[in-house]
Design a protein around this nucleic acid. Structure first.
Lengths: 222, 222
DNA sequence: AGACGATGTATACACCGTATACGTATACAC
DNA sequence: GTGTATACGTATACGGTGTATACATCGTCT
């Protein structure tokens, strides 16, 4: 039946993993499937749709198989964020695609809902939840994309010589921070520190008392 | 002199503004300049370098002509963030390019320094400043990219029907937030609210007393 | 048997970035 | 003047891209 379509998506994902996103051409995918390029169009409407379907498949992998009901909202939020970053570490080419389209696939909507429920449970007023969801997802995806695309990398020049390009007085911040800037950065611990900051930010948005996870209302769901 | 190079960058920027980033081809730029495609290579090493130069020119436009020394750090940070968003609203195609490369051009380094000095002035410990700079710039660029690429757009389906795709019980968050989700969002006020949140986040990172802008230490720099 | 839809193939078109080779025009040394 | 180096532009060509169009081959159903 639709097995051919899955086969095509598998091939595209494998090529992207092995040789990068720019190597994913209709011809290359077709060759991998063992078929003529034009045969792909019987199962996929075009290259854009093909890529959309591939990121949709990745999004599905984000989601905890069953949303851990017994964890607190902080843990659920952190798990989702780490799942996103892990996925873009395994598939760096996918990061830029996450910014391309709104969350339309069912899996993406489910991921958004995980954030919604976490924020509600934290006690964030309903009015602020959608905005904070966009803030959080924007940062998490942005971090993953920055890391994957090399925006966080020091560039070809080391920090010292990069700074040397400009008169020292023009960069008082760099000058003051020099000892810290020359240190290598561990992006994993940085990501965790950022998430801690964001959790603190969420808590400052709370007006009502948060819904306690340890004292579920009697007859709680399930 | 190098006038030809500026002319090429002008042409590329104009084409991107008028017909999108994908319309910027070496042939199209050359035709606009009134020259053969291969002539471009006398002034630009290739297409990637051309695009880098174009975003470099945009970055230069971010920067306040002279960093407003008399404003507080919150105002300077906000001004930079709004400048970034304004630029990507005027040139939506540029948003995705901002994630592609580290800040290597002198102008980009200067923008980073504006954030550094703002955080230092706010009283953030030196050790945390580089991380917070990455957090802030990631969010600001991510917001701009999300807005420009349509990630924040509701998609072709309206929220109601999008939600209708899944059994209602699977999306408790969407269900609860339905009245707010159906409202149109004003991304300008949302961006400002986000920046306010980030400023509050910065203030929670302060341990030492902030450097007051109104009471510079005697014999302050310059 | 015959029609039909699903699937794959063959060919072709317009476009892309750019390597290579060749022209031309100015500037400077002798 | 004469040669030559350098800057700039042109011409042609190669291998790649996504995909429109037309044709062939099936298994299935009537």
């Amino acid at each position: 039946m639709g097995g051919r379509r899955e086969e095509i998506l598998d091939a595209a994902l494998a090529i992207a993993d092995e040789h990068g996103l720019e190597a994913v051409s209709m011809r290359a995918v077709a060759e991998r499937v063992g078929v003529t390029p034009m045969a792909l169009y019987r199962h996929v409407s075009g290259k854009a749709a093909l890529l959309d379907a591939v990121v949709g498949r990745l999004l599905a992998a984000f989601l905890p198989p069953d949303a851990g009901e017994d964890q607190g909202w902080e843990e659920r939020l952190g798990a989702l964020a780490h799942a996103c970053r892990n996925a873009t570490q395994r598939h760096p080419w996918a990061a830029q695609l996450l910014f391309s389209r709104p969350a339309v696939t069912p899996d993406a909507v489910r991921a958004v809902d995980v954030i919604y429920t976490a924020l509600i449970e934290a006690g964030v007023p309903d009015r602020d939840v959608p905005r904070l969801e966009r803030l959080i997802s924007t940062f998490v995806i942005g971090f993953a994309a920055s890391e994957a695309s090399g925006r966080f990398a020091p560039g070809t020049l080391d920090p010292r010589s990069r700074r040397g390009r400009l008169p020292e007085g023009d960069l008082p911040g760099h000058h003051r921070l020099a000892p810290w800037l020359d240190l290598p950065v561990d992006l994993t611990t940085e990501f965790e520190a950022d998430l801690d900051d964001i959790v603190r930010l969420i808590k400052t948005c709370v007006t009502t008392s948060p819904v306690s996870a340890t004292t579920p209302r009697p007859g709680g769901r399930r």
